[in-house]
Amino acid sequence: MKEQLTEALIAGNTDTVNALTQALLASGTSAREILDEALLPGMEVVGARMRSGECFIPEVLLSARTMQGALEILKPHLGAGEGAGLGTIVIGTVEGDLHDIGKNLVGMLLQGAGFAVVNLGTGVSAQQFVAAVRQHSPAILGMSALLTTTLPHMAETIAALQEAGLRDQVKVLIGGAPVTQAFADELGADGYGANAGMAVDRAKTLVAQAATPQAI
């Protein structure tokens, strides 16, 4: 049944995914096992197909939304602190910028990949980002901008995180059309995504790195 669930998730068949998730729970399979052995592997396949160009963004979003539905079913059965799997990520478009299609797309794909996403919307100030990091203790903070004139707000947010003593507790991921790897390096951001798919990959790498014990 787990293989069927994986296939249904890849196909974005919401009804089948919900039914199979409930059936697996009823048959005694743990929520953790359903997540780790059926759902997350399914999203891995979807992510790989997106990277290779076999799968289109709207199809990836359908699988991501379907994944969200299954997570809602599993949530009451997951242990405290287990969350959705990969941890929480807070995202927002920086102050002065109303453009949010790219950021929302990244948010939906991150959810699909197994992150719990807190979307702060557009025009988010440095202090609002800091407050959200304090409130949600995310593994990652993601910021986006389309206008070059609003890029400095990314630096302001990183400085505000430092001032608040939170910089070490959260990885910072940035993106948007005018953002480059060089800009991310200059800013001291931990990662940069040139498009939605790359942002998700980078986010996964960042949490994997954080989970690996640092050599002393």
């Binding site: 160009g53 289109f56 963004i57 709207p58 797309l105 059309a177 498009n195 939605a196 798919g197």
Partner: peptide
Amino acid sequence: IMDMRTSTY
């Protein structure tokens, strides 16, 4: 138009 494979313009 959005490029539906990469999400770019």
